[in-house]
Structures are given as C-alpha cells and as structure tokens.
C-alpha cells in the first residue's frame, strides 16, 4: 500500500509540472531562443550581420509574415511574396535555414522578444564596412585548421569532413555547403557567428560540447577570405583517380583470388555423375 501511494504521488507531481509547464513560454524564453537559433546571423540592433538587424522588425513586417518566413523562408519566396523575394535578392540569394521545429508557443515567445527590441532608433552601431587584413601566418594556420592538419584545441571535428573549398590541396566533403565564397556572403562576423552557434542542427550538435576557440575561428575566417579572393578552379579532384584505383584494385584483387585459389575444388565431386544421369534421362 505504501509503495502504491508513493508511486501515485510521484505521478501527480509529474503531471502537475507538465500541466503548468506548457503555458509558461515567456519573452525571456524568446530571448534564449533567439540566442541559440538566430544570433549567428542577426543582430539585435539594426546593423546587418549575415542577415538584417532585428531592431524594429516587428514594425516593418506583420507577425504572420514573420512567422511564415521563420518557418520556411524559401517556401514563402516560392509563393511569390514580393517582400520575401526582395529580401532574398538583397542578401545575395543566401537562403535563411528553415525552423520548422519551433512550436507555436515558442514562435509567439520569439515574436514577443523581437517586439521588445524596439524601433530603428535603438540601433545606432552600424559599423562601416572595413576590410580586415589577415597575415599570411593566419591564413596558413586557418588552412591547417580547415584541413585538419592541426586539430582544434577542444577537439571539435575539422571543417573538411563536411565542407569543401576551391583551394589547392583541399578535397573536402560534400555533406555541407561549399564554402569557397562564404566570406563574401557572410564576412568574418558571419563566419565566426556560424561557427559559434550554427543554425544547422548537424553542425550545432557537432560543436556543442567542443566549441572552436576565438583564435581558431579568426584563422579559419582568414583562410576562407583568401580562398574567396583567389579560388583555385583547376584543382585535382582525386575523384577520377580514386575511381580508377578502386576499380583497378578490385580487378587486381579478383585476379589475385583466381591465382591464389586456382587449384580449389570448383564443383561437387558428383557433378559429372549427375550430368551423365540427366543426359541418360533425356
């Protein structure tokens, strides 16, 4: 009886916490959501980062429009919405990743938070675009980090395992976007923001417990800048070589097997007997 009561009370507590938990998504949660999902590309002022600054956005756009843009910006563009198309064109046709995972209360909380950011007046830190100059050492180091020649201090995965760039000696993965022109699109701020807090679930998870250090981020940005300025188009891809070697190696292996096991027993000892019997039946 005692154990039963204990179980029931535990269930009650659990149920209650669930019930009260549901309705309580507040603006504070909106801020947290913004930090994790949006801050990589959007500033809370009206300064551009990767995407536009968010100050006063709720005055510029309707809530519904914002919601559908956040849910699936490409979908919205596809519907032919003029504003959406214009923004997409304005930001070099860089698509904003969709966020279908936001629940309705979360979305509300996020909008509520955006409302608190106030009007255009709140932001005045528009930074004039100043070209950052990197040293050759930084670029070289960035390449090492990118290719994995040098591992990240915290042990995060190297960029090359998913990304490719048009640079000499780099044959990266095809799992994620080619980063050759990423510097032109995002700039250093964008790149570092992406690395620190990627809005892509896979990348986010990859660096969640082993973040990339500030110095490392800067080096990578330096490397990516140099790549975007001098992309090497005619680099040896190695795909053809690998394919040839692979097929060639496979054929060699087959020949080797045929040679090493050339004296193997190939048929049932009775094969001849059976063949003769079948012949005589026919």
């Amino acid at each position: 009886m005692k154990t039963n009561f204990y179980k029931t009370s535990k269930l009650l507590v659990l149920g209650a916490s669930m019930f009260f938990g549901v309705g309580s998504v507040h603006a504070q949660d909106g801020q947290a959501l913004f930090q994790t999902n949006c801050a990589a590309c959007h500033k809370t002022t009206d300064a551009k980062l990767v995407g536009p600054g968010m100050a006063g956005i709720t005055e510029k756009r309707s809530k519904d429009w914002l919601k559908s843009w956040i849910r699936d910006s490409q979908g919205l563009i596809a519907t032919g919405d003029a504003d959406a198309k214009a923004i997409f064109a304005e930001y070099n046709n860089t698509a904003m990743p969709p966020f279908p995972q936001f629940t309705d209360p979360e979305m509300d909380a996020l909008i509520t938070y955006l409302e608190t950011l106030g009007g255009a007046a709140a932001g005045s830190d528009t930074v004039p675009a100043v070209e950052i100059v990197y040293s050759d050492i930084q670029i070289a180091e960035g390449k090492q980090y990118f290719t994995g020649e040098k591992s990240f201090f915290n042990g995060g995965p190297t960029c090359i395992s998913c990304h490719d760039v048009s640079a000499d000696g780099v044959n990266g993965g095809f799992l994620a976007k080619d980063l050759t022109d990423v510097y032109t699109r995002l700039g250093e701020a964008g790149i570092t923001a992406m690395i620190t807090n990627a809005p892509f679930p896979a990348m986010n998870a990859a660096y969640l417990n082993n973040p990339v250090g500030e110095h490392e981020q800067k080096s990578i940005a330096a490397f990516l800048k140099s790549v975007s300025e001098n992309p090497v188009e005619a680099r040896t891809s190695g795909v053809l070589l690998m394919l040839t070697l692979g097929i060639g190696g496979f054929v060699c292996l087959l020949v080797l097997i045929l040679l090493v096991w050339r004296e193997r027993k190939k048929h049932s000892v009775k094969a001849q007997i059976f063949a003769r019997q079948i012949q005589s039946i026919n």
Binding site: W261, K265, S268, K270, A271
Partner: peptide, 9 residues
C-alpha cells in the same frame, strides 16, 4: 574453404 565436401558430395 573450397576443399570441404559440399552437401551434394
């Protein structure tokens, strides 16, 4: 092991 008798053997 090719030298093993098969079921038909």
């Amino acid at each position: 092991n090719p030298y093993m008798p098969v079921l038909e053997d």
